[in-house]
Amino acid sequence: MKEVDLTTEIGGLRLKNPVLVASGTYGYGLDYRDLYDPGLLGGIIVKGLSLEPQEGNPPPRIVETPCGMLNSIGLANMGVKEFVKVQLPLLRELDTHIIANIYGKTSEEYQEVAQILGDQEGISALEVNISCPNVKRGGLLFGAEPISAHEVISSVRRVYKKTLIAKLTPNVTDISPIIKAVEEGGAEAISLINTLRGMAVDIHTRRPKLGSGFGGLSGPAIKPIALYFVYRAVRSTNLPVIGIGGIVDAEDAIEFFLVGAKAVQVGTANFVNPKAPIEIIEGIRAYLEYHQMGDIKELINSLKEC
């Protein structure tokens, strides 16, 4: 039997398979290499990078909740310059696309980070984080309003020539105007959802369990919400949509393809089962073979009406 075709396209970017690892859950790309070759992935989205190094939020930064977890890492990162100097040379050795997630406090900062990365060989695309719930300035503020979302994406677009992905927040009433804004700003694809704002309280100390009070919820608990956002997004734009949110196995991923995602990102599952992305790739292949589909494109957006 002919090998099934798992390749998928995100704007100008051709992925050998549709399984990426989500920013913030995979470090700078090499933390799991003892367990498998990260080059097997469709792509790696590295930890969000800012112009200057960030210390991040006070601990505790992690708390588990039913079927999920809250985090308030606060975009702790080594800064884009250190990343380019120290990490990127190692990542160039991998046989997969490296996508840099970027973040800034102002649209000028986003632009500057994009400019630095645009000059670098080995970065295939940028995912612009306008949706982090854990930073006081920028992040979610940009992604929750069409005007600021447009401003950030268009300022990055002006200096960055390769594929541009806007990562969107579910913490909005209606996502359609945000999608329209980033599309007009020059995004070639969107990825969603980032984490949902949430909190947990210790009833004995009467304090929030997270050091910064609240955080972002991820994991299987948010999958139905994520799936619905992707479903809605696919029906409101022609941009390729990358599905994110609670994907832990191939069945989860296939649900996202059925509603129209052209690729998926595996996030929290990396913590639980580091080999999940590889098992998902194999599971998708097996599903397609079983259903006699030769190409993942036959699966994408093939949801039947209820």
């Binding site: 933390d31 992690i62 708390v63 890492i73 990396n270």
Partner: peptide, 22 residues
């Protein structure tokens, strides 16, 4: 000890404050 998610350094969730930062 600390609450951890990944255990391998990827998530930066388990930090403690030291004299040279988290």
């Amino acid at each position: 000890e600390s609450y951890m998610a990944c255990g391998v350094g990827a998530c930066q969730g388990c930090v403690i404050l030291t004299h040279s930062g988290y």
